[in-house]
Design a protein around this nucleic acid. Structure first.
Lengths: 198, 198, 198, 198
DNA sequence: TATGAATGAGTTTTCATTCAT
DNA sequence: TATGAATGAAAACTCATTCAT
């Protein structure tokens, strides 16, 4: 059913999984090209040959890293419990920034290595779509929404773009916090139909 | 081929510049790590040693590519001639997408290679700041703006984030066009204070 | 679990050893800097990459060459069978010159490349100390020695210096032979007879 | 036609001389192979092309460095003013060590680069011969010498070997000082007392 | 299922030397 | 007598991948 089916007998952390996790960290830190398979093996504490026993090529390892890591959909959904758009937005932005900061690896990889690699690019689009869908869904459930679905969708895309770019490309999750407030106000008002303060 | 040397007598296209331009193109196309200095030299038509005569290391060449390329401020400013926020936004989004598509090199490089390279990261932040500043400036000059400067700034950041992420990371400038319309409406309304259609 | 698993110098004709031996010869012949790793690989009959599989850097290969080669202590000791200081000195000088000539590689390397390389320099001092210690030991065992240990030590240092410099630096082992006779007389007398303190 | 005739009117430090001096320092510090002509030019403050204007090849520069530097004969001679062999030896050893330490460049180069380069090797032998000749001469002039010239010559060679090896190869001029005392006693006694031929 | 030595093409970088000015 | 850009061969080192065990 779920991706967990692959890791079902995870009584001990399988070496395959260990390789994926180490690769994820190193790819995120130094980039795909700048990370050698030998180093991955060394830091994972496995013999160098094992990498190619489990993954035919280095690119296959990258794909595994990128695909076997689910988007943090549920976390976003569960933390946005406020009634109003503004409250939900605040929760969403905070959670996303934190999530990306904490478990940014796969996300960073996806956006860095998408260029010229169709599978990665489509996974990048997938992640973006999932994120916006979740955000749109959360916003739609707020009590004070008056905007139509298309508008909500556009708002979700704007918010996700802003947070992604800050965290993934600019790497300034911390400095951006206070600038997010203004953005939240703008989006909230445009969805609730009033320039009136809350 | 040789005739050019005579005709271009006044403005000599220094080989240094030639190397930078070739590197820019290849870095943007394949990424920094995946582009060998040998290939840069070959495609630039210069001997491989010359690359390292002008740039001590490959990274120095990357820095030169990224730093010696100005942001296209004026283009944005000149194309946004409409009176209303909505018209200006349309022009801005179209121009930015086109600009990034056409001369995307440095921008793409900046956002791909920023991770773990402080000089590149700060240049990325610089480019982002310049772009948002320009957009904010253009929007402020519209006839129907009623929002305060902070709000305009937030709007500019949202627009720039959206277009950057689409073009640079997702590489989907073309498919996104129709989705931009909704975003433009959202931003325009939030700055003009009305839910009224134009 | 063989004993080989724990001992470093397992005696198998490994390619690693082959590389060390080839490097030793070439370093001694042409110097460290003037010997390319490619040439070492070619003359050893191994692929060029193998050099760097076994030794992280070229300097590490030099260190291996210099450190994994023991000083010929026993040879010196066994050949000096005469009863008198003079006879033992003759044997020592002849043996040392021959040894250095025959298996001079590591010695030459050590003294040529010590400058500015602490590990090599300390190995040079080590080799010098071992040689003088052995010589002093051999001389002390002669029947006609009357000098105190410090004097014997000084004599040993002089002899070793003279032979080392001739063979290693000046490369004139052959022409120096007849000049050694006078030196042997001088040292022998100073250790055996007429050494009346003033 | 001596080489000195050309550099006689050196009112200002000619750039040629500047290059030689810089090369001497760098060759001594890092070795001939490990010193690039570009670095010599840079540290000498001259354009890189000038090196090859004055010296056809890099090897010619090495030869110039090695040949246009006289042996410090006079210094040795003038400092050894004592009457006895022992006093003169003390002065000689101290002066040589100091001289080699202070102006060691050419000496170090000569002994490092002699291998496989006939001109350098013969210059090394020349320097060694000059040094021993001078020392022998100084010792012969002492009041208490009773040894014959051949013996004095052998003693000179021993002393010079010892000091050269210490300074040039082992680089331990400072730690060796106290060990020199014993050597001086040994040599002094062998030249002054109990010189009974067998 | 694991292992680590082996392979060779490819990478960045160095550098003595040349040459037009 | 200088000058500094240009040149290309060769250097040290990297690395994805293979393979015998």
């Amino acid at each position: 059913m779920t991706a967990q089916a692959h890791t079902r007998h995870a009584t001990r952390p399988s070496k395959r999984q260990l390789i994926i996790e180490t690769a994820e960290r190193l790819f995120a830190e130094h980039g795909y090209d700048a990370t050698s398979t030998a180093r991955i093996a060394t830091e994972a504490g496995v013999p160098s040959g094992l990498v190619f026993y489990h993954f035919a090529t280095k690119l296959d390892l990258l794909l595994a890293v990128v695909q076997e890591r689910p988007a943090p959909r549920e976390v976003l959904r569960s933390t946005a419990r406020g009634r109003t758009v503004r409250r939900r937005l605040r929760a969403i932005v905070a959670t996303m920034a934190e999530e990306l900061e904490h478990d940014r690896a796969a996300r960073i990889i996806v956006f860095r290595e998408a260029q010229g690699r169709p599978e990665i690019a489509s996974r990048a689009a997938e992640l973006f779509a999932e994120a916006t869908e979740t955000v749109a869904c959360v916003l739609t459930g707020a009590d004070d929404v008056v905007a139509d679905p298309a508008r909500v969708q556009a708002a979700a895309e704007l918010v996700v773009s802003r947070v992604f770019l800050d965290t993934v490309a600019l790497g300034q999750a911390e400095t951006a916090t206070h600038r997010h407030a203004e953005m939240i106000d703008l989006i909230a008002e445009s969805l609730t139909g009033g320039v009136r303060a809350e």
